[in-house]
Design a protein around this nucleic acid. Sequence first.
DNA 1: GGGAATAAAAAGTCAGACTTATATGTCACA
DNA 2: TGTGACATATAAGTCTGACTTTTTATTCCC
Lengths: 233, 233
Amino acid sequence: MSTTGRGLHGRVLDTLGPEITAGDYPPGSVLRTDELAQRFDVSRSVMREVVRVLESMHLVQSRRRVGVTVLPTCEWNVYDPQVIRWRLAGADRPRQLRSLTVLRSAIEPVAAGLAARHATPEQCAELTECALGMVANASGHRLEGYLFHDVAFHRVILTASGNEMFARLGDVVAEVLSGRTHHAVMFEDPDPAAVTLHVQLAEAVRERDAARAEKLTREITEGALQELDILAP
Amino acid sequence: MSTTGRGLHGRVLDTLGPEITAGDYPPGSVLRTDELAQRFDVSRSVMREVVRVLESMHLVQSRRRVGVTVLPTCEWNVYDPQVIRWRLAGADRPRQLRSLTVLRSAIEPVAAGLAARHATPEQCAELTECALGMVANASGHRLEGYLFHDVAFHRVILTASGNEMFARLGDVVAEVLSGRTHHAVMFEDPDPAAVTLHVQLAEAVRERDAARAEKLTREITEGALQELDILAP
DNA sequence: GGGAATAAAAAGTCAGACTTATATGTCACA
DNA sequence: TGTGACATATAAGTCTGACTTTTTATTCCC
């Protein structure tokens, strides 16, 4: 699901990456490649590759005669899916979920507006299908089924926008929605109002009503913000 | 400015990365580490580190017995600043600028709204200073000076939003604005209306008027969309 | 006390040998 | 003729050890 997995290199990364993003090493901390290689019982070659990847994510900086310096959070490539997963798996998951939900609230309405103008008939059909799936799982504690269709729905919207930057946020939205179902306070069935909004949104896109699609999505994301107690203007 | 620079490893990356993002190798193409090492006249160790980094950007996938496979565009980490720079330097720069400008139009209004509620007095002061700088350079073909303050202005807005995801887009916005000045059709002095909007936006933030800040920013980004002939709803 | 020469430390680079996974081709058998 | 098991070749993956280069810190001389 989350892991780079394959290879010795990936396993080291899956340990060291989360440690760094969790803040185990305060910014400015210096790690030595040799020591790390010893700690993980791998060769220096493998360790160097790991450091290179962490460096490309701007989590660390490698300098001669100094070592591998941990960079402050503001330098990190916070849009890297791997970094997002690591942080969501760590201690500041709530904080991370807030940031991402605010991001959603900015992106999705615009994406929905574009989707209303660019969606193919197939995508419109998918959308209605997802909305129906949400309705079908809206009651009776079928949270997993609801989540599945919810994620699919938002993925289609983002993809149908025709903007690759939006489309790439599908995984992020999936993580946020999944996090809400699995970790946050969502014991009860989903809000019926939200379900209705999704059905209406599918309609609006099908009818190429960009303005309505945008407005409906704004209502959906505002609901998400309220769930996390993020004050809306 | 753009380069990873330091080290042999970085120089190879700065050649191979742009080649891939430019589409020189169609998706599914297979590269061999040994051949690449020969081509760039570096050791396999260095070449492997390069491949690992490209893999972490999801530009390629390395598999045993197969080689290094180039992935389709939809897999790329398009938010990676390095990838963005490579693509902006390549042939599909116009397309890329459009995607990013649409992204701006989604993010910045929301960021401005948040900035109006969270900006520190220092940030408010910076904002007015930047706006004044824009006014001062608005006429007389002082495009560079104007750009400088424009970039600084938007950076402050994004940072002041208090959302790290937004703050991290400062570099992207800088690239877009800089691209407009240097490559696009901007021979003449900037639009006076845009200058006024920035001044008013600085005001709105200072006066904590979130709704007005958001609306003004929406007008600013709509202007940016129109410049690129992206139809607004 | 300040600046140049010196030493040390850690990353960077390379070459070669070896391991492992896996795609593909071969062959026997049904 | 098709199918499964087996063998083989291939390219990435890993390890080791020696060497280079850059940069920081120390020392020493003026």
